[in-house]
């Protein structure tokens, strides 16, 4: 057998292993990028492709105030949730790492909301925050606060609701990652500092925190990336309201595409989101690699 034939044989043997993934990956992950580019250059509705419009969709996007508003809303969501999420996740991980009989209870209850469906957590929030007879408002009455907040009708309160619900729902994931980081810290570091007479605060400040920086950076970037994709809980809780004040970019893309029947323009705005996320994930992969992970 000559070497060329042998190489062919080897390729042929590997093919059945590679092909199923390769085909699914090509059709559903890679091809949409090119398809999206094509769509963004056309007038295109839910039924079919209409006419070539060149860069018209892109110029429309740059002048569309709703696009900028919803991009800002998504960015605001990222700004509000990221630092609070990382801080809360760290606190919860420290609590869940305490050496106590309650450890499983802590971990379980911090994580439990994460497994609930977005529809469930959204409607729990809506019903608990109902004015007049919602649980939260009646408890507020009970403790003597007589304000009757309309949680979804006020811009600031709507954002508070969305952020708090998102924290409650997803912080468990980040806590688990921090927990893994905490457990990776070598016991010997603490033992050595014990001998040196370090206080608990000093141990936390000079051992725990610095050791958590690598995983903390991963969590931070993952969180930013995930938050830029926010959509479902906002759609379900506030519907993007009041008056579009909380509408995220993905919701606007959805509305343009499927309510206004303009897939071409929706694909164009998807490209904007694509580039934001692409840059963020390149940064993330870079920093993960530099940690040798």
């Amino acid at each position: 057998m000559n070497s060329k034939k042998k190489a062919w044989m080897q390729d042929l043997r590997a093919l059945p292993f590679l092909l199923p993934f390769f085909i699914a990956y090509l059709i559903f992950t890679i091809f949409p990028i090119f398809k999206g580019l094509e769509m963004s250059l056309y007038e295109w509705n839910l039924v079919r492709k209409l006419e070539f419009v060149g860069l018209e969709n892109y110029t429309e996007m740059f002048q569309d105030e709703f696009f900028w508003d919803s991009l800002w809303n998504t960015t605001l969501f990222v700004i509000l949730t990221t630092p609070t999420m990382v801080a809360l996740a760290l606190v919860l991980a420290l609590l869940a790492n305490l050496n106590t009989k309650l450890q499983t209870f802590f971990r379980g209850s911090f994580f439990l909301p994460s497994i609930l469906s977005v529809a469930v957590i959204s409607f729990l929030a809506i019903f608990m925050l109902q004015p007049y007879n919602g649980l939260v408002n009646t408890v507020l009455q009970l403790v003597g606060i007589n304000a009757e907040p309309f949680w979804m009708a006020d811009k600031t309160l709507a954002w508070v609701t969305i952020v708090v619900v998102t924290l409650w729902w997803t912080v468990g994931f980040n806590m688990v990652l921090f927990l893994a980081g905490l457990q990776d810290i070598p016991e010997s570091l603490y033992e050595a500092s014990e001998i040196d007479g370090a206080t608990r605060w000093e141990q936390f400040r000079y051992i725990t925190l610095p050791q958590l920086i690598p995983i903390g950076r991963v969590i931070l970037l993952l969180q930013i990336l995930a938050s830029y994709k926010v959509f479902a809980q906002i759609l379900l809780i506030t519907g993007g309201g009041p008056g579009g004040a909380t509408r995220p970019l993905i919701q606007y893309i959805y509305e343009v595409g499927f309510t206004k029947n303009n897939l071409g323009y929706a694909a164009t705005m998807s490209y904007a989101l694509f580039f934001i996320l692409l840059v963020l994930s390149i940064i993330q992969l870079r920093s993960q690699r530099s940690e040798g992970k």
Partner: peptide, 16 residues
């Protein structure tokens, strides 16, 4: 593929 966010390609995915 790690860098391609599904949310941002969902409109063309729908067409496909």
């Amino acid at each position: 593929g790690l860098m391609i966010p599904g949310e941002a390609t969902i409109i063309p995915l729908y067409e496909i």
